[in-house]
Design a protein around this nucleic acid. Structure first.
Length: 803
RNA sequence: GCGGAUGUGGCGGAACUGGCAGACGCGCCGGCCUUAGGAGCCGGUGUCCCCGACGUGCAGGUUCAAGUCCUGUCAUCCGCACCA
């Protein structure tokens, strides 16, 4: 027997698989289809780190198991290659991002191939390839034509030093990450996509998919549906301020009102506001903060009272002061609120700081002067006119009915979800395929002109006034209006990285199609994705954006299903050995190249799965990796005790069936760590026994194949298996042979274990009770006490309660 | 602040619908083998006052029985819309 030489084995089988094309998915095959998807990587300059392969290995195992179960499996790979880091690298080194991207992709490809994933490389896609982004642009044009894309002034982060727009990530503690200058909010006209039009459907259709419950919850909370009311407050200026509230029941408890600093009424009423200078100063301060800072720092409430103005509470005619404060966001609701400090903790904080009255209108809590009482399930209305005596649940609709009758307000459903800011003033993204004509406005370019390719430019940094680098391509910009033929200018903003990743899974179905994003037949055959795994950090934005695009494509008859993904799971992060997030700056990054060089891809894959609970984050351990290598070596060395016998030996038969069941089920439940543990236990059994039949060994090899495909493929060949193990049949088990004839049960007295007994597995309750009570140890322990009760659970335990 | 999650030996973790806490692996301890060992094999390993008792972040509660259910609390991690 030769010793385990992963280096030669792994290369050999990777070449053979590629040559035989055994992982190529076939469109329209007779076999049942199965589509497994992982989030395609962003090919960064740093290369793959050990976190990426966690998801890839997991779904590779699922894909490989499905193939062995007879499915036509699509497990594709591609590159989400537009984006900031590449662009910033390009700016710094004045090298075209296309060149950087190509080099990064080459490195990623080498690394992924080295790990033996069963991707169908013939379907590789790249979001920066014009043949690909032709269709990203095409989808945008359809959205535009349906009125789902529109232009609006939106705040952007503006670096006062570099004079460019920054992403949120580039803003650290309110200053520019690169130059340290102050960052302010500046308004800029941006393309927006109306995802809010799909808000309700994005919630409702979650009922039809099999996502992890926490993922559904995240999606729902992000969309943030709330039912409430818009209430009109008359102001002393004669203007009308509309507030949004989910607690209409507390209207009698409103003691002040607050508008966001950007609310248009503030500006409009400036002549009536006697302290307008102070108001303007506050507005300027608020403009510096991002929305995140405004809400995060809301612990310490700030604000300015609008002097000379008051609002009238429509319920009781009380005159209420009006404030502006940055804890009220112009983007949510109506940008104005009524404040009920007794029953809202943010309002309570604000009221305490500005010494405003706190009036209790829901009884049942502690003293509202000391703490806000926010429970909506208990408590009765007090001090509330016609609502007094009702429960909160009764009072909410009663108040809204009254407001509607009086013409003072109306029911309103609100969503936290906001429309999608779709413009970037950047080079490395898909050009937005629109032109602006002075006569016709924004006009779509003809579809026949797609793809609209990125123009060549000398430098990639944004312009002085924050315009896109594309603005420098003068020849490219100036064009004619497709509508009237007059002079027109192209849009110079590009699309965000989210665009290409919002539909990539469709392109895999038919990646070389020039006529459509994918053929009808391919879409019909492969849709929907059966299993999609990715990081928890993508469960709000990417998941929502791609579901939105998919629903739109469904509406215009392009895709056959309402939802793209039938099942969505997520994995935890792999941390550095020091239990911190892996990063260059922390110096705790583990490079898969080194791991594979020293221990091989199979050991790496096995450890990636054995490292811990798949859905939780867990630290890397070089020692743990070694343990997995040793396990594979033990499997290899079992060859010395394999005999020629066919079939399972009598004493191992149950163990074999149990292990097949355990491994099969654990893979489906994403319990990869316990699946590996079960195989380790089986190897321990084999070693203990000292001899293994060929069938037993072949079963182990087959079960292990999805995890450690190279080594097991080699062993399969050595023991005369036919064809590739990777497409052989998955082992079957007999349920009847997974249950023991005798089981050990525990006998407790008052919950404390006093004896363990071996009993027939099918014994009934009375029988079990009898055996337990006749045990000498139990008799002795219960001696002199009265048996109050006996609980017998067949197959588990007997608990004798004594006094 | 808002939303989602997590907390079990020295470490990673296991424990199906409440039913033997600590599977499997690492580390550690002891032994065997070896010219040698950061190799291999065998055995042991939650804690303690070791007959027995105590143990799943902390404090209560429900139950014959709680890591698992309930109430409260503390700590940590992820996301927060221009990173992907």
């Amino acid at each position: 027997m030769e010793s385990y030489n992963f280096k030669s084995i792994e290369k050999k089988w990777q070449d053979k698989w590629e040559e035989a094309k055994i992982f190529h998915a076939e469109n329209g095959s007779e076999k049942p289809k199965y589509y497994t998807l992982i989030e395609f990587p962003y090919p960064s300059g740093a290369g793959l780190h050990v976190g990426h392969p966690r998801s890839y290995t997991a779904l590779d195992i699922v894909a490989r198991k499905r193939r062995m179960e007879g499915y036509n499996v699509l497990y594709p790979i591609g590159w989400d290659a537009f984006g900031l880091p590449t662009e910033n690298y390009a700016i710094k080194n004045n090298i075209h991002p296309r060149i950087v991207t190509a080099a990064n992709i080459e490195n990623f490809t080498r690394q992924l191939k080295m790990l033996g994933f069963s991707f169908d490389w013939s379907r590789e896609i790249n979001t920066t390839d014009p043949k690909y982004y032709k269709w990203t642009q095409w989808i945008f044009l359809q959205l535009f034509k349906k009125g789902l894309a529109y232009k609006q002034e939106m705040p952007i982060n503006w670096c006062t030093g570099c004079k460019v727009g920054l992403s949120n990530e580039e803003v650290v503690n309110g200053v520019c990450e690169r130059c340290g200058s102050e960052v302010v909010q500046r308004r800029k006209s941006q393309w927006m996509l109306k995802i809010t039009e799909y808000a309700q459907r994005l919630i409702d259709d979650l009922d039809e998919v099999n996502y992890l419950e926490k993922i559904k919850t995240q999606q729902k909370n992000w969309i943030g549906r709330s039912e409430g009311a818009e209430v009109k407050f008359r102001l002393s200026t004669g203007d009308e301020m509309v507030v949004y509230t989910t607690r209409a029941d507390t209207l009698f408890g409103a003691t002040y009102t607050v508008m966001s600093p950007e609310h248009p009424l503030v500006e409009k009423m400036k002549d009536s506001i006697t302290n307008y200078a102070e108001v303007e100063a506050y507005k300027a301060e608020a403009a510096k903060k991002s929305e995140f800072e405004r809400t995060e720092l809301a612990k310490d409430k700030t604000g300015v009272k609008l002097e000379g103005i008051y609002a009238v509470n429509p319920a009781n005619g009380e005159k209420l002061p009006v404030f502006i404060s940055d804890y009220v966001l112009v983007t949510y609701g109506t940008g104005a609120i009524m404040a009920v400090p007794a029953h809202d903790s943010r309002d309570w904080d604000f009221a305490k700081k500005f010494d405003l009255p706190i009036i209790e209108v829901v009884a049942g809590g502690e003293d509202v002067q000391k703490e806000a009482y926010t429970d909506v399930y208990k408590g009765k209305m007090v001090n509330s006119g016609f609502l007094t005596g009702m429960t909160v649940k009764e009072a909410i609709p009663a108040m809204i009915d009254w407001l509607e009758k009086e013409g003072l307000g109306k029911r309103k459903v609100n969503f936290k979800l906001r429309d999608w800011v779709f413009s970037r003033q950047r080079y490395w993204g898909e050009p937005i395929p629109l032109v602006h004509c002075d006569k016709c406005g924004w006009v779509a370019i003809p579809e026949s002109e797609l793809p609209l390719t990125l123009p060549e430019v000398e430098h990639f940094e944004p312009g002085e006034n924050g315009e896109s680098p594309l603005a420098k391509a003068v020849d490219w910009i100036n064009t004619t209006c497709p509508h009237c033929g007059g002079p027109a200018q192209r849009e110079t903003d590009t699309m965000p990285q989210w665009a290409g990743s919002s539909w990539y899974f469709l392109r895999y179905m038919d990646p070389h199609n020039d006529e459509a994003l994918a053929s009808k037949e391919a879409l019909e055959y492969w849709s929907p994705i059966d299993w999609y795994n990715g990081g928890m950090e993508h469960t709000t934005l990417h998941l929502l954006y791609s579901r939105f695009w998919h629903k739109f494509l469904y509406d215009i008859g392009v895709v056959p299903t309402k939802e793209p993904y039938m099942k969505r799971t997520s994995h935890g992060m792999i941390l550095g050995e020091n239990n911190e997030k892996m990063s260059k700056s922390r110096g705790n990054v583990v490079n898969p190249d080194e791991v594979v060089n020293e221990f091989g891809a199979d050991a790496f894959r096995t450890y990636e799965m054995f490292i811990g609970a798949f859905d939780q984050s867990t630290p890397w351990s070089q020692q743990g990796l070694k343990g997995c290598y040793k396990f594979l070596e033990r499997v290899w060395n079992l060859q010395s005790i394999v005999n020629d016998n066919e079939g399972y030996s009598e004493d191992l038969e149950k163990t074999m069936h149990k292990t097949i069941k355990k491994v099969s089920e654990d893979i489906e439940r994403m319990k990869f760590n316990t699946a590996v543990a079960a195989m380790m236990s089986l190897v321990n059994e084999f070693t203990r026994k000292g001899s293994v039949t060929k069938s037993e060994y072949m079963t182990l090899i087959t079960l292990l194949n999805p995890v450690a495909p190279h080594m097991t493929e080699e062993l399969w060949q050595l023991y005369g298996g036919s064809g590739f193990l990777s497409v052989a049949s998955w082992p079957e088990y007999d349920e009847a042979k997974t249950v023991d004839d005798e089981v050990e049960i525990v006998v407790q007295i008052n919950g404390k274990i006093r004896d363990k007994l071996l009993v027939p597995a099918d014994i009934d309750k009375p029988g079990l009770e009898e055996i337990a009570l006749s045990s000498e140890k139990i008799k002795a322990a219960a001696d002199g006490k009265t048996i109050v009760k006996v609980i017998a659970i067949p197959g588990r335990l007997v608990n004798v309660v004594v006094k």
